[in-house]
């Protein structure tokens, strides 16, 4: 499961812009602020500022879109999984991502936006999703590395969201996080086993790590200095830890795991900083990141077209189920009369 740790405006075509000042009723606003300050929870029927509602819908729906688009890169290997055990694990894992998307769409629906409206945003290209899924899965090792690193990065992001100020989002995240640790562990374990195998297998793992490492670091979003909306998200309790802090936490946690696995991380600047008590790391290529976010990565068009096709091809099935439910209800009413 994968959140975008940043919250990109869906159609600003680029960097985040600060929100306009509030024009809400000052009394209601004050009560809302007080509840947020007291670390209280906001529930669907409570009053909330429009900007809070809009930000949440955008963030939760981007998160949900990321889950269902995220089914595709790993789904790419289900049919070719190299053992029946790994096949079952992978199906269960990709299925979970679908479940996470579903929990999140449901959470966003409590804010008055329907799933169809959100899907329309995705399918029309207006809505964003995590840019990590616009990269291809080229070998079986990518499946393991996505579990270990991509899910690992996502967990860093998502654990704090379990305490998010919006009740339905927080509850969805609790459910998601419970299921998530299976995802990271299965990925890491799959890699551990491959590293006991043939030289080709080991090379496959290292190659996958090389291709995914920097993309995972970018998943945490732009540096805090370039994320004006992050501050507002923190103020509202829908973002609990800053991008850079989460990224650092991820690097610190991952370096020893890489060592146990026996792979190197592709960053010559990666080294322990005794003074900071953290690992230093090199420059992330933000130009590439924004290109991919804005639609020009290697798989953006394929991912989106695949989702649109599944939705369009399923229209007759969804219509049939509704038509049948209506017919059945009409028959029952007639029989009761």
């Amino acid at each position: 499961m994968y959140t975008q740790s940043f919250n990109v405006p869906d159609n600003a075509g680029g960097k985040t812009v600060p929100l306009a000042p509030s024009t809400e009723d000052p009394v209601l606003q004050a009560a809302f602020d007080a509840r947020i300050d007291a670390d209280g929870r906001i529930e669907p029927q409570d009053w909330m500022p429009e900007a809070y509602r809009k930000t949440l819908v955008r963030q939760i729906s981007q998160h949900a879109h990321s889950e269902i688009v995220g089914m595709l890169p790993e789904g790419n290997w289900i049919s070719r999984a190299p053992s029946l055990k790994r096949k079952a694990i992978l199906i269960a894992k990709v299925q979970d991502e679908g479940g996470h998307g579903l929990y999140l769409y449901s959470a966003a629906e409590t804010l008055g936006t329907s799933r169809d409206q959100m899907l329309d945003g995705l399918h029309s290209g207006r809505a964003k999703y995590s840019s990590i899924f616009n990269y291809p899965t080229l070998t079986w090792a990518d499946v393991g590395v996505i579990g270990w690193l991509v899910d690992g990065a996502a967990i860093m992001n998502q654990v704090p969201l379990c305490r998010c100020s919006y009740g339905p989002y927080a509850r969805a995240m609790v459910r998601v996080c419970k299921e998530e640790s299976f995802h990271q562990r299965q990925g890491y374990e799959a890699l551990l086993v491959m590293m006991t195998g043939t030289d080709e297998q080991k090379a496959m793992v290292q190659d996958a790590v090389n291709r995914w490492w920097w993309k995972c670091l970018a998943m945490f979003g732009p540096p805090d200095a370039d994320s004006p909306n992050s501050a507002l998200g923190m103020r509202w309790g829908i973002k609990r830890v800053s991008n850079d802090e989460l990224r650092q936490k991820f690097v610190d946690a991952t370096v020893p795991q890489a060592k146990v696995l026996g792979v190197t991380l592709p960053d010559p600047d990666l080294k322990w900083n005794e003074e900071r008590q953290h690992y230093d790391y090199g420059q992330i290529d933000w130009a590439e990141f924004w290109e991919t976010v804005n639609g020009n990565g290697p798989c953006n068009k394929e991912r989106l077209a695949t989702r649109v096709k599944a939705h369009n091809d399923g229209q007759w099935v969804r219509d049939a189920a509704l038509a049948h439910a209506a017919k059945k209800q009409a028959r029952e009413m007639r029989d009761a009369a």
Partner: peptide, 10 residues
């Protein structure tokens, strides 16, 4: 399993 990620509804 070919439907995983491609179904008519989630």
């Amino acid at each position: 399993a070919e439907w995983c990620g491609h179904g008519p509804i989630l």
